[in-house]
């Protein structure tokens, strides 16, 4: 069984849960940007957790199934068709050999996921099948798919057609995005009024937004004047090079904050003012260029509560289609 890529879409990669080891030598996790949609896609087709899927950004691919199989589409609202016939998202379907999955224009969100029974079977690199786009490692030949690619699909999963997630549990995606942030790290480097203003600013996602990070525009911050410490470099946005958490927000030069995401650099010399909580990373992954974004400060307790809520939502969604 295989998937033949007739058209690749704008940016389609193989992704799974991502790498859980290697950050200490500079290897970011990669993995699906919207973990909720990714996990549901696998669940709908009857895959065990962790199998690899396709992640399609902005414009979906056109994919031929070489054999009979079961597949599901989740994530962004990007109307899917099978042989030209409309197809429900957040549900699993049977495909026959030669059937072609295609997508219409994106209506909302940014990334759609296609899971196939058995999972995309590329060779794992450092414990994961995820494509790490910044350095071209893992996934299918370390790169986004192109027309003509033939992707092997794993065997051993029969597939569960006809599953359907409860519609009420489809995450709401709109053009107004709120991302909760635990303030910290070098936030003391920003003037208090300026830091407060940061959280009151309507930031807009620039075209420079991808799996590595999202760059925003709409305001600027003022740094607290200081004599730069030894080793940091003279610019006020510089710090002695430090580790960057996934989701951390840095502001090189004081304008255009950057949220570092799944394929980002693991450390560097720009001051970071806080970190997007894990529960909201999927929300970033479904935001797109031009979307208005607010960063909302939250306590650690708030972040942990949001994490629990996200886990409950995932379990409820899974329970809605598997008995």
């Amino acid at each position: 069984m295989a998937l033949r890529i007739q058209q690749p879409g704008l940016m389609t990669t193989v992704q799974d849960e991502g790498r859980s080891d290697g950050y200490r030598v500079g290897m970011p996790p990669a993995g699906a940007m919207d973990k909720f949609a990714y996990r549901i896609a696998n669940g709908l087709v009857g895959n065990p957790d962790g199998l690899a899927v396709l992640e399609a950004t902005y414009l979906g691919p056109q994919v031929e199934f070489t054999e009979d199989t079961v597949f599901a589409v989740t994530g962004a609202d990007m109307p899917a068709t099978l042989n030209g016939e409309p197809l429900d998202a957040w549900a699993s379907h049977t495909a026959r050999a030669g059937d072609v999955l295609a997508f219409g224009f994106l209506k909302s969100g940014a990334r759609a996921y296609v899971a196939v029974a058995g999972g995309i079977d590329v060779k794992p690199v450092l414990g994961s099948r995820s494509t790490y786009t910044l350095c071209g490692m893992g996934g299918f030949e370390g790169r986004p798919l192109v027309a003509g690619d033939l992707l092997s699909v794993g065997s051993g999963v029969d597939g569960t057609p006809g599953r359907r997630m409860d519609r009420d549990l489809v995450p709401a995606v709109s053009g107004a995005v709120e991302l909760r942030v635990v303030v910290g790290l070098a936030s003391y480097r920003v003037e208090p009024d300026s830091l407060a203003a940061f959280f009151e600013t309507d930031w807009s996602v620039t075209p420079d937004a991808n799996r590595v990070g999202y760059r925003y525009r709409g305001g600027s911050v003022e740094w607290v004047p200081r004599t730069q410490p030894r080793g940091a470099g003279s610019d006020p946005a510089n710090v002695v090079d430090i580790g960057y958490p996934v989701g951390s927000i840095q502001i090189p030069g004081g304008s255009e904050p950057i949220a570092l995401l799944n394929d980002a650099v693991t450390g560097g010399g720009y001051a970071t003012i806080g970190t997007i909580i894990s529960a909201d990373l999927s929300v970033v992954g479904q935001s797109k260029t031009g979307d208005v974004t607010r960063f909302v400060p939250v306590s650690l307790e708030g972040a942990l509560a949001a994490r629990r809520d996200a886990a409950v939502r995932l379990e409820r969604a899974r329970a809605s289609f598997s008995s």
Binding site: V182, G184, Y188, R230, V240, I277, A303
Partner: peptide, 29 residues
């Protein structure tokens, strides 16, 4: 919101819910 004063010693900071960043000093040595 954090104070805008430099930390006197080690700064323990939560990077969201999945990370802890420990700044032992602002200066390199």
């Amino acid at each position: 919101m954090s104070a805008s004063t430099a930390p006197a010693g080690t700064l323990y900071s939560h990077g969201g819910d999945e990370w802890i960043v420990v700044q032992l000093d602002e200066a390199m040595s």
